[in-house]
Write a protein that binds this DNA or RNA. Sequence first.
DNA 1: CGCAGCGGTTGAAGCGCTTCAACATCGACT
DNA 2: AGTCGATGTTGAAGCGCTTCAACCGCTGCG
Lengths: 333, 333
Amino acid sequence: MDDVAAAAGVSRALVSLVMNDSPKVSSERRRRVLDAADELGYRPNRAARSLAQQRSRSIGVVLNDLHNPFFAEVIDGITDAARADGLHVLINSPNRDPELEIELVENFIELRMDAVVVLGARGRPDRLAAAGREIPLVVVGDNVPGVDVVMNNDRRGGEIAVEHFAALGHQRVAHIDGGAGGGAFERRDGFWDAAVARGLDVKVLPGEYTETAGREAVDHLLAAGPLPTALFCANDVVAIGALDRLDDHGFRVPDAVSVLGYDNTNLSQLRRFSLSTIDQPRYRMGCLAMEQVLKRIAGDTSDPVTHLVEPELVPRRTTGSPSPSHSNAGGPS
Amino acid sequence: MDDVAAAAGVSRALVSLVMNDSPKVSSERRRRVLDAADELGYRPNRAARSLAQQRSRSIGVVLNDLHNPFFAEVIDGITDAARADGLHVLINSPNRDPELEIELVENFIELRMDAVVVLGARGRPDRLAAAGREIPLVVVGDNVPGVDVVMNNDRRGGEIAVEHFAALGHQRVAHIDGGAGGGAFERRDGFWDAAVARGLDVKVLPGEYTETAGREAVDHLLAAGPLPTALFCANDVVAIGALDRLDDHGFRVPDAVSVLGYDNTNLSQLRRFSLSTIDQPRYRMGCLAMEQVLKRIAGDTSDPVTHLVEPELVPRRTTGSPSPSHSNAGGPS
DNA sequence: CGCAGCGGTTGAAGCGCTTCAACATCGACT
DNA sequence: AGTCGATGTTGAAGCGCTTCAACCGCTGCG
């Protein structure tokens, strides 16, 4: 920096002002400084800058599962919102290791990020909350007491499924559960309660977020008697498994049975599946998380808040009215 | 840090030694310092540390497409290898914007990362090469002249496809091209050359890395006369599109026509598809990239090198011997 | 007794930047 | 002519850490 100042024939402080494009520099000197910097291949040192400025102008994102495309879109929202405020976004991934997750959050604190966003929190809630006391911290996709949270209204997602089925005229419905997966409880309870409230014949099968779980649940359903006419799956992958198994047994979808997924993943969009599903506004979740971060950075110290975003039905070709000509009680028609 | 030193009754320098767990500190004082740090909730400031140490002990990864699961596994390899050497990994994503990609590389330079890895380079090669002169820089998945590169041997991938088809006894084969997508040229040329060398009847259809391209290519193929008995698709998504369209027309796979994808994505693993495909050793690519980075960090200044990794056939249920009883010349049998 | 050697510790300089009080310059206004 | 404000510019202090030469107090040796 001294070299640049010397080359441009100004003081070091002036170079600094130029680098932070302060308005109080004559355009002629600014140009001279910029030229000199270019000439010398000078690059400001951000470590030194954040040390001096006491802030880094960047926020850290702890992305628990790089393989899960769900979060990619959330990050799009985060980065777009951050970029609009001149903040940089730095990501790291603990690869689903809860212990590592906390470490990486702490690493971001040591890096003096201005804030941290955790996507798909798996670490101990109390430790996350403790970190939240050291630095603005918002969690996306999971409910962690004591910190700011942005979540999908999964309970409402379950209700939407029931409403969709009811509108199509279904009476006997079932849900394949997502086990301990994120949001699975809420989806199940929302579905169950809404179905009961409408007087539908409802059934829940245990499962998890895998294709195999979907296949097995269909087998159980078949063993247990007449198939329900509509099947709400905990997520798209489960739905794919169920669809596959239904096809094995010769059931036509949606004539014999309607299938509804959750998440609107790229899978559901494949022509072959054209899976009706329920979308979570991921991009919006990212934006909301960033808005909350900005508030905290600006000095808002009010109690932690929870933002709920609303899921939305994406009807495709796997749901329809139950066909009266089909009796799926005893097998394929 | 002064506070910690005071609380522990030692000098600031000693605290620093403890924080870098130097061996020259008595275990009693070490404990006292650690306790005091804990007490005061002290966290070392890594910005200050990298300023003083002149290195950050972290490497930056520019991940061009967060939505592409391909890179997730590469990053697994990178992080595992980095962690083994006590390096942190920081990721950021330009979201396929070439201009932004360069900016983010430069941002990592300003952050004084020890090295940068670019996944799926889209930026101007000359600017990447220029950045490579300022900092150790390795590119994964694309060929950029003047920098270290780790790539899959896509040409060999095309050859493997031919070998597979030939071993199954196919005579008339075709390829749906990936257009300008990464590695598409090489896959196509490898396939073509190997097929010609074996005297096969070979045909190439233009395409791109989309489902629609797969569907359309099948339509073209049908319009052009008798279907080849084996179809090598530029990647899995294209193959899914092709499969779907073949199914629409009533062709049985693999009896009437074999279909081979590329990438071994999660799609190909779905039971419904069980798509035969060609796998790229992604994790290994990450490790290799990291090894190269470590060499450069250690001071290796030899000419840029290119590491080629070998693809591998993953046979599933969409490829088989052409069935002599099937004549697919005039439509489904 | 003196000194080398050693584990352990200290003070101070410096990493590259920001920032602030203070200063210089100059045109405009009383 | 003198003063004031606006506009630019400067030097120096300080951000939180590392590191190195120097130092301290001790043991063990000749």
